[in-house]
Nucleic acid binder design. Structure first.
Length: 679
DNA sequence: CAGAGCTGTCATATC
DNA sequence: AGGATATGACAGCTC
């Protein structure tokens, strides 16, 4: 604790705290992963505390004015409100605040932490585990597990996992601080050999033992563990929520970072065993008597000493720290390099540590850290919204800042938003939707298009750990949905079935950026907030289904707001496209009409010309006829009739009259007035 | 670099 | 009255 204070005061920063926790195997990540967004109130408050302007005023402006931790609002279908403090975040916040740290971001705890929940260890036997699972990996947040309950503050130490590992571990000499890299390497080798010699079982065996051990411990500590395990999910939620309430009342709030570290040291999978393979043996123990694991022989104090200053690390690794090198290292390796090698000349062992941190589907804060800049603390709050490995705070900030958006709906668009299924043997099609139980409304394709999300059933939360498939097989179907947020950029991309994922031909960041570029902004937003539906679903969903979906599933206000925005924008986008299409059609139709009318006009003109021509012909014929008639006519005196003075007029009875023109003109005025009849 | 075209989004009107 | 739809206007992006 003292070191933590020093570390913080030295500018180590929050990120280092999270990194340390992450190194310790807890994997307290800056990204949310399974977590809902952080509480807006906290975000605002902590932003103020941080004193840094947010780059996402837009995002903040969209935050609901109220809300609790994470999925505030709907923790349970019955409407039970969540326990705002029943979470690891709450613990950490209090703990770190006690250290004078103004802010701790929303954290992510997954992997083995979740196992305790999935295995029915909701009694809080692991204390922190329960808290972590309840807040982080627990899909249903605090309703799932009892944070710090049951097992009490030292639950981590009494963890069956810790006990189990301690039994397996040989007596290890007291950790010593390495004085040089070479010595550290030697010790590391020795340590690795010991570890390998002791723990040569398969991961699956260990996981099975862990699960069984958790259950046993559950029975020991709570006595009703089986009852809890046998209870319905809703009942389990009630039980754990009641524990949360107890926790709220302060009866068992004594979790500390020490506990956290101790607990971490007892976890075999993700922490020290693997760390020890790749890092100099950081020996010794936490000075305050923390029951550090002798088996793993890792000292967080040393880790802290190696990882003193974020800014220093940034200066030392200006090029590599925040850039993913696709060829030489995985992101985890880079992170470790950044985190542990304050000496730039000290090279990182090229050991594959993917067993420590599954890369693709579990890119964690380490990944984020590459993208953080010197103003990283201004972005920490935004990191809280980051739920995907490919997001960095800038991206998230921009996501919510940029006024223009691409909801990903296009008449011709075919964004590939499918979730990569790491294990193709587990289909999601027959398990219903991700928090969307209407089988008629959600197809398999829709599921693949879901942008993120979690399943609201807390009991189904578990980490996608291959070693635990035997014990948690029934839940694995959802694990792909819950934990695998890798998105194909190419539909034909082979499914990443291996934990060791290599970024194809380009840097990880570039790859992720490209991947994200394939997603619309709304899709990215939905992904960031773990909206358990695809944008396409949200938009195309019928109104009734949409409304029932909003009311049926645990969605935070922010999620609901985003979903509605996505639907509104998507609908409007389609409407705008249709409108433009109609407008274009109208324009085209009008152009056709114009052409048709012009053609008709020309036809009429031609007809008119022909008629005029015919009329002229007729007039000429009439004139000739009249001339011929008058040439033959004689008056009474035998003189020829002047055609200029007289005109022929045909009467009704067929007779012709020779009428003087002046009479003809006046006769028009006076009908019936006729001249003299001529023959 | 300017401009046209396309697209997404918002505000508002209309249904 | 409220939601869905239509549309004008604007801005960003691409060519």
């Amino acid at each position: 604790m003292k070191l933590l204070k020093q570390w913080w005061s030295a500018g180590g920063g929050l990120l280092h705290l999270t990194m340390l926790l992450s190194l310790a195997g807890l994997r307290v990540d800056l990204d949310l992963y399974l977590l809902p967004p952080p509480p807006p109130t906290l975000l605002r408050d902590e932003l103020l505390l941080l004193g840094g302007p947010t780059r996402s005023a837009y995002a903040l402006s969209r935050f609901p004015a109220s809300g609790g931790w994470g999925r505030a609002g709907r923790l349970h279908p019955k409407g039970r409100e969540p326990d705002p403090t029943a979470s690891l975040e709450g613990h950490l916040l209090r703990e770190v605040r006690a250290l004078g740290v103004p802010f701790i971001p929303y954290t992510r705890v997954d992997a083995w932490l979740v196992h305790s929940v999935a295995a029915g260890d909701a009694t809080g036997a692991h204390g922190l585990l329960g808290a972590a699972a309840s807040s982080g990996a627990g899909v249903d947040g605090g309703s799932q597990a009892a944070p710090g309950g049951g097992g009490g503050p030292r639950a981590g130490r009494s963890s069956p996992l810790a006990a189990e590992e301690e039994e397996k571990a040989p007596a290890e000499p007291t950790a010593q601080v390495p004085d040089a890299g070479g010595r550290a390497s030697q010790e590391n080798e020795v340590l690795r050999e010991k570890c390998e010699g002791v723990d040569d079982r398969s991961e699956q065996e260990k996981n099975e033992e862990r699960v069984s051990g958790q259950k046993e411990k559950l029975q020991e500590n709570n006595g009703d563990g089986n009852k809890v395990a046998d209870k319905s999910e809703w009942e389990v939620e009630k039980t754990t929520e009641s524990r949360n309430e107890r926790h709220l009342n302060g009866t068992d709030i004594s979790f500390s970072l020490e506990d956290l570290f101790q607990l971490l040291s007892s976890q075999p999978d993700y922490s020290l065993e693997n760390i020890s393979e790749d890092f100099p043996p950081v020996l010794g123990s936490i000075s305050d008597g923390m029951n550090s694991s002798t088996y793993y022989n890792v000292n967080f104090t040393q880790a802290i000493s190696h990882d003193v200053n974020l800014h220093e690390a940034m200066l030392l690794y200006p090029d590599t720290t925040f850039r993913r090198d696709p060829v030489a290292r995985t992101s985890q390796e880079q992170f470790l390099q950044w985190n542990f090698h304050s000496n730039p000349e000290q090279t990182l062992p090229e050991t594959n540590i993917t067993g420590f941190l599954p890369p693709v589907e579990h890119l964690t804060s380490q990944d984020l850290l590459y993208d953080l800049d010197a103003n990283i603390f201004d972005e920490i709050n935004l990191l809280s919204f980051v739920t995907e490995e490919s997001f960095d705070p800038m991206e998230i900030s921009q996501l919510f800042e940029e006024p223009e958006s691409d909801s990903g709906l296009s008449l011709n668009s075919s964004h590939s938003t499918s979730i990569t299924k790491c294990n193709s043997s587990h289909s999601v099609s027959d398990e219903g939707a991700i928090g969307y139980s209407n089988p008629n409304s959600l197809s398999h394709h829709d599921l693949e298009g879901a942008v993120g999300g979690y399943y609201p059933e807390p009991s189904k939360v578990c980490h996608m750990d291959q070693g635990n498939e035997t014990g948690l097989h029934g839940d694995l179907t959802f694990q792909h949905i819950l934990h695998n947020h890798t998105y194909h950029t190419q539909p034909d991309d082979p499914e990443p079935t291996s934990i060791s994922f290599s970024w194809p031909g380009k840097s990880q960041k570039a790859y992720l950026n490209d991947t994200d570029k394939s997603l619309s902004r709304d899709e990215q937003r939905a992904k960031a907030l773990h909206i358990p539906f695809s944008v396409d679903e949200i938009v195309r969903m019928p109104v009734d289904s949409f409304n029932s979906m909003l009311s049926r599933y645990y969605l935070t206000d922010l999620q609901v707001s985003l979903i509605r925005d996505i639907r509104r924008r998507g609908k409007n986008k389609v409407a705008a496209q249709n409108c433009r299409k109609r407008k274009l059609d109208m324009i085209l139709n009008l152009e056709d009409d114009v052409c048709n009318l012009q053609a008709k006009k020309e036809t009429l003109k031609r007809e008119q010309a022909q008629c005029n021509k015919a009329i002229n012909i007729m007039k000429q014929k009439l004139q000739d006829l009249c001339h011929d008639v008058f040439s033959r006519l004689k008056d009474d005196e035998g003189r020829p009739v002047n055609s200029s003075q007289y005109a022929l007029e045909c009467s009704h009875d067929g007779t012709f009259l020779i009428v003087p023109k002046e009479l003809l003109t006046s006769g028009h005025k006076k009908e019936g007035q006729k001249g003299k009849r001529k023959r």
